[in-house]
Amino acid sequence: MPNAALEEAFAPFVGQDFGPPEIARDPVNEAMIRQWCDAMGDANPIHWDAEAAAKTHHGGIVAPPTMLQAWILPGVRLADPDRPPSDKQEELHALFNQHGYTGVVATDCEFEFERYLRVGDRVTAKATIESISEEKATALGIGYFVVTRTRFENQDGELVGSMVFRVLKFKPSQPPQQASSGDAAPAKPQRIPAPRGHDNGWWWEALDRGELMIQKCSQCGTLRHPPRPMCHACRSVDWEEQPSAGTGSVHSYVIMHHPPVPGYDFPVAVALVDLDEGTRIVANVVDCPFEDIHIGMKVECSIEELGGVKLPVFRATS
């Protein structure tokens, strides 16, 4: 259900400029260019070696084109938490915030370049709020996409390039967590380990020791997987562990593409494997081009760490 009051309030913003054109405080200069190239590891001589640059069609030192916005950003003033909204975009964001759409995330960025900037050029930027979408349901929460366009000109009024930015202003579906440095999200995601309970924990513990086990009924000898507390053939609750040879063939398989899950590094192949002992197991197939995986393919198991979790993985039998 769209927010009518908000939509009415933001409508006048569409088509408006952020404010008067912004003029770069400093002309394009070698010091800032060199700092940028150092930070990006950019060794392109057209940005720092006048002699080499002169031999290219650029004809002399030019600024990296994606540096365009850096010429007009206000620098350290951006970090001032008490800075009042200074342009229409910031006023628009403040309006969204008042209505509970406090989240913001940039989703798309597009640069187009007409000409490379040369040392001594001075940039002027004119930014416009181009459009605001209808309300959208997204993974982050409901929100609106705001598109802004900035036009960059040089001192002669020639178009240098343009930048289109799309951000989502959204109502966070989860209340923001008061994260401290101790419990913030880990730097690297891991796979989700199997929850372990009374009836399955032993199997994963064996895997931790490097052994692929099959549950075997102590009374009638029937093998079963996944483990269960009672034998379906004779109803005995006595069972033992039998090591598997780890060899078998692919019964069916899929390639996981979407949705991506952190820690899993999709696309990955998952197969249902017929173990030679007669039970089946779901596990990843690795080191095999996806197009070569096929039903009936002979595979063998090894136990390895994938995404921080010890798992059985299968490779094509050589």
Binding site: N44, P45, I46, A52, A53, T56, H57, H58, P65, T66, V105, A106, T107, D108, C109, E110, F111, E112, F113, Y116
Partner: peptide, 12 residues
Amino acid sequence: PDAALAKVAIRL
């Protein structure tokens, strides 16, 4: 070095 970028369009 003779190349010139014309466009960079990305989804974040």
